[in-house]
């Protein structure tokens, strides 16, 4: 009788351990089990230098989605963004690739527009800003100075 109790306790303990492991795998792996609460939006950039998959998408510094995919189509970078369902984007919203701090990582910032037409899932944002190439700007400045 006593032995049976111990076995049950060990069994429950192992089960709890497995549940915790499962929970952590889902959380850490960012697997979405219960349906998709995001919708895709495309944005075409002339350059996405430094931007990586799963990077955050922000509006006013608040996270509203992530970068799902980056593809090269017709020599232009097409970025698929996954935006939370409750965030509505207007047709004239602007997507910009910005840097956190001076040398920090890249992220996508969306500035909402004023249009009455909202972006439907799968639509494209037409107004985009590529990342600013600081090295190139410094280069232009330095060469300018040397020549002058």
């Amino acid at each position: 009788m006593k032995k049976f109790d111990v076995e049950i306790i060990v069994g429950i303990f192992v089960l709890c351990g497995l549940l915790c492991l499962g929970y952590m795998s889902v959380r850490l792996g960012k697997i979405n089990l219960i349906g998709n609460h995001h919708y895709p939006v495309n944005a075409v950039f002339s350059s996405v230098k430094g931007l990586k998959k799963d990077t955050v998408v922000e509006i006013s510094g608040v996270e509203v989605g992530k970068v799902e995919d980056i593809k090269l189509i017709d020599y232009q970078a097409v970025v698929t963004l996954l935006i939370q369902d409750d965030i509505k984007l207007q047709e004239d919203a602007i997507a910009s690739i910005r840097t956190k701090g001076l040398l920090g990582e890249k992220y996508v910032e969306i500035t909402p527009g004023g249009s009455d037409t909202l972006i439907k899932p799968g639509d494209s944002l037409h107004q985009t800003e590529p990342p600013i190439d600081i090295e190139k700007l410094i280069g232009n400045f330095v060469f300018g100075k040397v020549k002058e």
Partner: peptide, 30 residues
């Protein structure tokens, strides 16, 4: 010195017109 300038245009009934100019990746409208 080369500077990239991009013009965004919109066709509103039959007429193409500029709605944004992007110089070296910086959008005027934004």
């Amino acid at each position: 010195t080369e500077v990239s300038v991009e013009y965004n245009m919109l066709n509103n009934p039959g007429e193409w017109k500029i709605y944004d100019v992007i110089i070296e990746g910086v959008s005027l409208v934004n």
